[in-house]
Simulated scan of single mutants.
Amino acid sequence: MSQALIASMQHETQAIAAFVDALQQERNAIRTGDFQSLGELVQHKQELAQQIAQLGTARQAQMAALGIRVGGGRQLVGLHIDEGVATAWRTLVLTARGAAEANALSGAVVSAHLEYTQDALQTLRQRGDTATVYGRNGRAQAGPRGVSLASG
C-alpha cells in the first residue's frame, strides 16, 4: 500500500511542478506583453489547482488509511513510515514550497503591473488643470474652455 502512496505523492509533485511552470509562463507573458495568452494561462492554472486539490485529498485519505499524519514542521508521523514514503513526502513538500514562492512572485509581478497600468491611465485621464484628457471610452475629451482675461 505504501507504493500506492508513493505514486500518489509523485503524481501530486508533478502536478505542482506543472503549476510552477504555468506561473513562469504567466510571468513571461506579462513581461513580454503577450496579454492575449493570459486568459488561456489563467484557465490552465485553475485546472492545475483543481487537480492538485483532488490529488491532495486522495493522498490524505491514503495517509490516514496507513496511520500516517503530518506533524509539526511538516514531518510525517506514524508507526511504520517507509523510507520511500518519507523521500516522496520531502520532495512533495519542497516542490510545494517552491510553488508558494513562485505564486508570491507572480502576485507581486501582477500587482506591480496593475499599479503601473493604473498610473498610466490616471496620467492619460488628467491634465495639469485636472480636466480629463481621455474618457473611459478612450476618446479625447474637450477640456474647459478657460476664462477670458479681458473684460468688456
Rank of each mutant, 00 (worst) to 15 (best):
116 Y>I: 07
47 E>H: 14
35 F>D: 06
105 L>C: 04
63 M>L: 05
113 H>I: 04
57 T>G: 06
94 L>D: 12
54 Q>H: 13
114 L>D: 08
91 T>I: 11
83 E>T: 13
113 H>E: 11
110 V>E: 04
49 A>W: 02
79 L>F: 08
76 L>Y: 03
39 G>N: 11
42 V>A: 14
55 L>C: 01
66 L>N: 03
109 V>L: 06
59 R>N: 06
107 G>K: 01
63 M>I: 05
46 Q>T: 12
71 G>P: 01
41 L>Y: 03
108 A>V: 11
81 I>M: 03
99 A>I: 10
111 S>A: 15
32 T>V: 13
98 G>D: 12
61 A>K: 12
49 A>N: 10
102 A>T: 09
89 W>E: 02
93 V>L: 05
35 F>N: 10
104 A>T: 12
95 T>W: 06
76 L>A: 03
37 S>P: 02
52 I>Q: 04
50 Q>N: 14
49 A>T: 12
36 Q>Y: 10
67 G>V: 00
59 R>Y: 07
52 I>T: 06
75 Q>I: 01
63 M>A: 06
108 A>G: 07
83 E>H: 11
71 G>N: 01
93 V>M: 05
55 L>V: 00
67 G>A: 02
84 G>D: 04
87 T>F: 10
65 A>N: 06
105 L>W: 07
62 Q>N: 00
93 V>C: 04
78 G>A: 07
102 A>M: 03
49 A>H: 06
65 A>R: 05
53 A>W: 03
46 Q>L: 12
32 T>M: 10
114 L>T: 15
53 A>E: 10
110 V>Q: 08
39 G>H: 09
86 A>Q: 13
81 I>A: 03
59 R>M: 01
47 E>G: 14
71 G>A: 02
43 Q>E: 14
70 V>D: 00
116 Y>Q: 14
110 V>T: 14
38 L>Y: 01
105 L>P: 06
89 W>N: 05
73 G>C: 04
102 A>P: 06
66 L>F: 00
44 H>S: 13
83 E>V: 12
102 A>H: 04
57 T>E: 11
72 G>H: 08
72 G>N: 09
70 V>L: 00
86 A>I: 06
